[in-house]
């Protein structure tokens, strides 16, 4: 690979993904196993990153936390992508009144600040993994849908689409064969660059206690534990913070490289 940042990004992403997948092989501890005699242990051969205030092995919790973070990031991004693409295509290709209604909804949703939105949802439904997914969707879908809608509007009057209509192609076929393949590239790159944002949202909500519930491991929750017990051990903060930093950096470098490869004109901007 010619891009050094891309190589770093790819390596980081690979490390995070592989360690999340093989968490069970890489550690012999259970992520929620409490061991009161081993509280606030410093790193050692037994506990690579030490232990937390309940004596749980931090390395294990980081690995399983990565699993949760990635599952939420990839899952909720995928759902956002699908919903965004479908709504965007409908808004762009459908009747004008439907477009107007959808645009109004997108703008209304988008105008909520993320934190307020998260707080509202958690107040209504209580903190959970699903709250995180819903917040991510509400944050991402309007953006994706708007981009897809604009591109669809442009292509709607393109000659190759007119030609397909003149042949009698159905709206579904036109969207699937003649429009979507021509507009999906840029949005996939955007999505890959959004994954670190979603990782941060999950970590942030869990840090605030609005996301993943204990004892399920989450980087944000580990970070919170670390802050609560900063006087007893600073290892917990490092164990929670470092993976967040490395993962977001890795995905960002990776996404930017992907974008440059896809559209060389943007290079260096």
């Amino acid at each position: 690979m010619r891009e050094p940042l891309g190589a770093i990004g790819l390596t980081l992403v690979a490390v995070v993904v592989l360690s999340a997948i093989f968490a069970g092989v890489l550690t012999s501890y259970a992520p929620s196993k409490i061991s009161p005699t081993e509280r606030f242990a410093s790193p050692s051969l037994l506990h690579v990153l030490g232990t937390d205030h309940l004596g749980r092995d931090l390395f294990t919790r980081v690995l399983y936390g990565g699993r949760v973070a990635l599952m939420i990031a990839l899952g909720s991004t995928l759902v956002s992508l699908i919903v965004g693409v479908v709504l965007g295509l409908i808004a762009g290709y459908g009747p004008r009144w439907l477009d107007n209604i959808l645009l109004l909804v997108f703008d209304a949703v988008k105008s909520f600040p993320t934190v307020m939105l998260a707080l509202t949802l958690v107040t209504l439904f209580g903190p959970s993994l699903y709250a995180v997914v819903v917040v991510v969707m509400l944050v991402n879908v309007p953006g994706y849908a708007r981009i897809i809608r604009t591109q669809t509007l442009v292509l709607k009057s393109a000659e190759h689409v007119m030609a397909a209509r003149s042949m009698g192609a159905s709206a579904g076929r036109i969207l699937r064969v003649h429009i979507l393949p021509n507009i999906i590239g840029p949005i996939l790159i955007l999505v890959s660059m959004d994954i670190p944002v979603v990782v941060a949202i999950e970590a942030g909500m869990s840090f605030l206690g609005l996301g993943v519930r204990p004892p399920t491991p989450s980087w944000g929750a580990i970070l919170n534990d670390g802050f609560a017990n900063i006087r007893d051990s600073y290892w917990i903060v490092i164990a929670g913070g470092l993976p967040i930093v490395l993962t977001t950096l890795g995905f960002t470098f990776f996404g930017e490289t992907l974008r440059d490869l896809f559209d060389p004109r943007l290079k260096g901007r």
Partner: peptide, 25 residues
């Protein structure tokens, strides 16, 4: 559109831009 479909089969149309009227992918 549904009723026009058999008509469109009998009366195809060619558009101005020779390359642009072909789906690029």
């Amino acid at each position: 559109d549904a009723r026009m479909k058999p008509v469109r089969r009998r009366m195809p149309m060619m558009f101005q831009d020779p390359v642009g009227s072909l789906s690029p992918r």
